[in-house]
Design a protein around this nucleic acid. Structure first.
Length: 594
RNA sequence: GGUUCCGUAGCUCAGUUGGAUAGAGCAACAGCCUUCUAAGCUGUGGGUCGCGCGUUCGAACCGCGCCGGAAUCACCA
């Protein structure tokens, strides 16, 4: 299969060197011709002027003539200012389409042999998943898919924060006020039930603070001495001492939460190859502290705590070990990173974590580097911005958090209503109708989230997210469904479209579509390199849009010669295939009909 | 104050190894359903790319300085 970019690059280089002599290492500036100009590829000639010693137009013309004479596949050129636009022959594009059509694995790269671990989701076990987690999960999953399509060996992992004061709060509130309530007895999803008691704890905590302050205590003192808070802290100590009763309750309630999370993960279509629990990893990293002390990179303060001074790097001093010898988050993350790289022979490690932890990862990488671990450079923090609502930020205190399960149900429900209204589900069984509504509702949600650059703070407008027009998931799904319909109709009419010839690519619209298809592997590669699923999304949308335009101008019922008709149907087939694989990378289902 | 990130049409967003007249969608307006799915298509209007200076033949993109916004700088995770 010919790589079109390098084909062009070689052809142009050959002709330019024939004219002006060897280009020692200089890169020619070749890019795709913009839509509004005629041509396929454009050479920017400005940098070559000092070699040609002629005006831009004259230089471009000179090179253009030479290229057309040298390379039969390039059939014509035009010059606008310093831009030389080259047009490839239709026969060339026809051949490329033939290759694309024949390639089973088109759009995927051969194995690179690199192993990359990607950690995402990373929930706390004291409350259900919300909209922010949805962005995290979708980014993590789609980037994993993209990396896999780029030929990497990908390990998806989840690090569950299952220990700490937060879960103790839920546990204590449940003990005090739960009345033995369980997911079974209450009919509540386990994570929602545990989240309910976390809220309950906060309510009682606030009440106690208020009461203490009424007795004349300062706010600070009241916060420290509130009985329920002391109880939670006591519970944490018992947990650390593996008190059987506390430990058993902890296991039970976390179990409820995991059952709940599984339902949400399944609905979102994300999964993991391995799940880590902080209760099993939180002691990691202590040996690194001794190592750092020995190397003189860390230092000990008089209270016995261990620190690293990063002020020379523009950062601050960072604590690594408390005075009592217990570790902090940074310490365990250092240890976890080390054990992961060693145990899995990782080449790269990606953390999908919100941008509020940018500083943390900056420090993490720096410390590992100072300890002499060169793989520190292969740690990538895929940082993403917050999701805001039209009324502002999500605040749990003000009850403006968008719950993940509620949102998913809403999206699917709205998709169902809209579909019914439009009569899209007429003739479907209930099962089919549900399946389509789910694909469309979740497609809308996923695409809406993924089309935005991860690092940007994004606005989530529920009304806009369920929009089915314009740059949306359902638009792309719809296009795919229409293509499938077209192909079904063709098959019913007894048209065998597999026998067409590439000669039909002389039709201009088809050539345009083949060019779009030819971009596909590059799009995937680019997205893999800079972790921007939005590129894939934008690409799928452009393809869907161009096909929709194309589709409206053609009819399989129109009289046309066999070769032309076959070519169009093959193209439809291929566009459908490309849309499907692009959406699959993003984790979005594409229905056969809508 | 330090660090990191963001600022593009009324709104939501694309657009970087520096290239041509800065693009979509939504919203607004005008058209298109006895032919394959109108969740569609075609067209019109809408911009000091936050501001300034610099580098360059050429800057939304690179550098410096401002302005505005976000996150973070815990013996929390």
């Amino acid at each position: 299969m010919i790589n079109i970019d390098s084909f062009i690059s070689q052809a142009v280089t050959r002709s330019v060197e024939a004219l002006y002599g060897k280009l020692d290492g200089e890169q020619l500036q070749i890019q795709k011709t913009r839509k509004e100009f005629e041509g396929d590829y454009t050479l920017v000639v400005f940098p070559l002027l000092r070699r040609s010693r002629k005006a831009p137009e004259a230089t471009a013309t000179e090179i253009g003539e030479r290229i057309v004479a040298d390379t039969p596949e390039i059939e014509s050129f035009n010059v606008i200012k310093g831009f030389l636009n080259l047009s490839l022959s239709s026969a060339f594009w026809g051949e490329r389409f033939g290759e694309i059509y024949a390639a089973e694995d088109f759009g995927t790269a051969p194995s690179t042999g690199r192993t990359v671990m990607i950690e995402y989701s990373s929930p706390n076990t004291n409350k259900p998943l919300h909209l922010g987690h949805i962005r995290n999960n979708l980014l993590g999953y789609s980037v994993a898919q993209i990396l896999r399509a780029n030929g990497h060996n990908v390990i998806k992992v989840n690090l569950v924060n299952d220990r700490g004061i937060h879960i103790c709060k839920s546990m204590l509130a449940w003990q005090l006020y739960g009345g033995g309530e369980t997911p079974e007895s209450s009919g509540m999803k386990g994570d929602h039930l545990v989240g309910k008691y976390y809220v309950e704890f906060d309510k009682h905590y606030k009440a106690e603070i208020k009461a203490l302050m009424a007795e004349g205590k300062s706010e600070e003192e009241a916060k420290k001495t509130a009985p329920i808070m002391l109880g939670a802290q006591e519970m944490l100590r018992k947990w650390e001492a593996k008190d059987p009763e506390v430990y058993s309750l902890w296991q039970t309630m976390n179990g409820w939460v995991y059952d709940g999370f599984d339902v949400t993960y399944k609905a979102l279509g994300v999964d993991f190859d391995k799940v880590y629990y902080e209760s099993q990893t939180y002691l990691l990293g202590k040996s690194l502290v001794q190592d750092g002390l020995d190397k003189g990179i860390f230092f000990r303060k008089e209270d016995n705590s261990v620190w690293i001074d990063l002020t020379a790097d523009g950062l601050d001093q960072k604590l690594l070990l408390r005075g009592d010898g217990t570790s902090v988050y940074m310490t365990q993350d250092l240890g976890t990173a080390l054990s992961r790289f060693e145990e899995n022979s990782l080449d790269d490690m990606i953390y999908v974590v919100g941008n509020e932890q940018n500083y943390h990862f900056q420090v993490l990488k720096l410390i590992l580097k100072k300890l002499g671990y060169d793989w520190s450079d292969n740690i990538f923090h895929l940082s993403y911005g917050m999701v805001e609502l039209p009324e502002g930020k999500m605040k749990s205190r003000e009850g403006t958090v968008v719950d993940a399960d509620d949102l998913i149900a809403d999206m699917v429900g709205t998709a169902r209503e809209m579909s019914d209204e439009l009569g899209k589900l007429d003739g479907c069984t209930e099962q089919e109708a549900n399946a389509i509504s789910t694909m469309v509702g979740l497609g809308a949600l996923k695409y809406f989230i993924l089309k935005v650059d991860p690092k940007k703070t994004m606005l989530f407008d529920p009304r806009e997210s369920i929009d089915f027009n314009g740059n949306t998931g359902p638009f792309i799904q719809y296009t795919h469904a229409r293509i499938r319909s077209l192909l079904r109709k063709a098959a019913e009419a007894g048209i065998d479209y597999a026998g067409g010839t590439a000669a039909a690519a002389y039709l201009p619209e088809e050539v345009e579509l083949v060019k779009s298809l030819a971009d596909y592997p590059n799009v995937v590669a680019a997205a893999g390199d800079n972790f921007a699923p939005s590129i894939i999304g934008a690409y799928a949308y452009e393809l869907a849009k161009s096909f929709n335009g194309y589709y409206h101008d053609h009819s399989i019922l129109k009289e046309e010669n066999t070769a032309v008709r076959d070519m169009r149907l093959r193209l439809a087939d291929e566009v459908a295939r490309v849309i499907r694989s692009a959406m699959k990378l993003l984790g979005i289902d594409v229905p056969e009909r809508m």
